[in-house]
């Protein structure tokens, strides 16, 4: 069940891509690099850093964010014309919070261990700035279908960084990927040690900093001048 809910939006994207106009396709592909939510828009950092010690929770978290982001964009975009402007933040938060409760209950029912590891961070998807940011910047002014695609794209862009960071941290910190041992035992016998620093919270920031560095070296138009 949990995998079904998570796969649904991705399937829509893949099967539809042939039919899409280039503009709609761009909505999904842009956030992967040029306007990546984490490294360029600086949204949703909080959860990105805290859940990335291991790959498994970060993949689950990424899926949860894709689902919440896509569907909250869709819902808000459908009702965008009847939301009074003054209370729109509360309306948006209510929609997002209801979706997050759904996701939380599904996670608790099907992947309880992971949901325990993620602890408060599932709840914190509500205040994840990616979701609020996309609602404000995109869903409030666009039709439902592009808004949905925008949500999927931004969710995946976020998930991409999450999975990359967690892969680096798990490999360096525990010598494993997805719980499978990568660094062979003979290395340990020769005196190789797991880098305990990689599991500690501050390392996440440094790894993301290095990713930003790499990305901006490859993509010079993103460089800031100050």
């Amino acid at each position: 069940m949990s995998t079904e809910t998570v796969k649904a939006p991705v399937k829509v994207k893949v099967s539809g891509e042939r039919l899409f106009s280039p503009k709609n396709k761009k909505l999904v592909t842009d956030p992967l690099n040029d306007s990546n939510p984490i490294t360029v828009q600086v949204l949703g950092i909080c959860s990105a850093l805290a859940v990335t010690t291991k790959m498994e929770p970060s993949i689950v978290m990424a899926m949860a964010v894709v689902v919440v982001c896509a569907f909250s964009n869709l819902v808000i975009s459908i009702i965008r014309n009847i939301i009074p402007n003054r209370i729109r933040i509360i309306v948006q938060l209510t929609v997002v919070a209801s979706l997050v409760i759904l996701v939380d209950q599904v996670l608790k029912a099907y992947v309880y261990d992971v949901s325990k590891q993620l602890s408060v961070f599932v709840g914190l998807i509500i205040t994840n700035c990616i979701i609020m940011g996309r609602l404000e910047a995109f869903a409030m002014g666009n039709k439902p279908w592009p808004a949905f695609l925008d949500g999927v794209g931004n969710g995946i862009g976020y998930g991409l960084i999450l999975v990359l960071v967690s892969a680096v941290r798990e490999l360096l910190g525990s010598g494993e990927l997805m719980g499978f041992r990568i660094v062979p035992d003979s290395f340990y016998k020769l005196g190789y040690f797991n880098n305990g620093l990689a599991i500690l919270p501050p390392m996440a920031l440094i790894v993301v900093g290095v990713f930003i560095w790499i990305q901006r070296t490859k993509n010079p138009k993103l460089v800031e001048n100050n």
Binding site: P201, L205, G209, I212, T217, E224
Partner: peptide
């Protein structure tokens, strides 16, 4: 840090992340 010579791709966001990481290590 505005007066320091930070590598261009690292300017702004990147260096802020790394400094926060170092401060986090100090707080540990």
């Amino acid at each position: 840090i505005r007066y320091s010579n930070v590598p261009a791709p690292l300017r702004g966001l990147g260096i802020t992340f790394i400094i926060t990481g170092l401060m986090g290590i100090a707080f540990m």
